[in-house]
């Protein structure tokens, strides 16, 4: 068991800036009577990379989807880049412009080509000209290393390629923080690495990242902090070194034990 938590490859904690990009304070959410998020307290600093893990149904997706309000929370406050989410459309628009999201199922627009997928939001949300939007799109497609696929449709691409396009599409809006919801879970094993490598590249460039993932290798080598959720609560958060070698709670130990046996 100890060998699986081998920490020799865990880097020393990086200093992160004090600037808070996301602050969740006392956030609660219910689906009808089901209490899915219980008093969530979370601060994400600029440049920080956080991995969220936990058993199925623990509320990981719900938590990150509250940040860009794909799900509404009922209590508490969520502040992104100084803007607190309320019922004003203006605030929601601002938050969504600052927050990029990558989904498990990619969710590319099937009726648009790869480059059009990337151009849509800059043109229709930011009012960027077509030429400029294309230049931006090609820049980020090059960055995820698939510029040659620009004029294909998503359906003609492999899963790994589609997920890289989805990442590029988000980057075209120049987000301050990127949310990932199990970005590699829907991929064939041989394609996981190309997506993780793209995410590592982003991390190296200083992107603030919040990733729901069960890729513990990624957590060890990239995360500044690992958050463990269970039954709607943040049970434990720690540096990867601490988290994997010296988990504090029983629930975390059980979870790590289960992940190990897979």
């Amino acid at each position: 068991m100890a060998s699986a938590y081998d920490t020799t490859d865990v880097p020393a904690p990086r200093p992160v800036s004090g600037e808070v990009v996301i602050r969740m304070a006392g956030v609660q959410k219910w689906y009808d009577s089901f209490h899915v998020l219980k008093d969530i307290e979370l601060e994400v600093h600029k440049g920080e990379r956080i991995v969220i893990c936990g058993p199925s149904g623990s509320g990981k997706s719900t938590l990150i989807r509250c940040i860009n309000q794909l799900e509404k929370h009922q209590k508490g406050t969520i502040t992104v880049n100084g803007v607190t989410i309320d019922s004003a459309h203006r605030h929601l628009d601002q938050v969504r412009r600052d927050v990029g999201m990558v989904f498990q199922q990619f969710n590319l627009f099937p009726h648009l080509t790869v480059v059009e997928n990337c151009m849509l939001a800059p043109m229709r949300v930011r009012g960027t000209s077509k030429q400029e939007a294309r230049d931006i799109a090609m820049k980020y497609l090059a960055r995820v290393r698939i510029p040659e696929q620009a004029d294909k449709y998503p359906g003609q691409l492999s899963g790994g390629q589609q997920q890289r396009v989805a990442i590029a599409r988000s980057l075209c809006m120049n987000p301050k923080v990127m949310l990932f919801d199990e970005p590699t879970s829907a991929l064939d094993p041989e394609m996981v690495k190309e997506v993780l490598d793209t995410m590592i590249g982003l991390a190296e460039d200083g992107m603030t990242m919040l990733c729901v993932t069960h890729e513990m290798g990624f957590a060890k080598s990239v995360a500044d902090r690992v958050i463990f959720m269970d039954r709607g609560e943040i049970v434990e958060q720690a540096t990867p070194a601490e988290f994997f070698t010296n988990p504090k709670s029983e629930r975390t130990r059980n979870f790590l034990g289960q992940i190990l046996t897979h």
Partner: peptide, 23 residues
């Protein structure tokens, strides 16, 4: 049209009219 299409378009900042029209 799958739910994920609405979500991806909303997450990119498209509001209802643009989301409907383009996605």
């Amino acid at each position: 049209v799958p739910r994920g299409q609405w979500e991806a378009a909303s997450a990119l900042g498209l509001r209802y009219p643009g989301l409907m029209r383009y996605v």
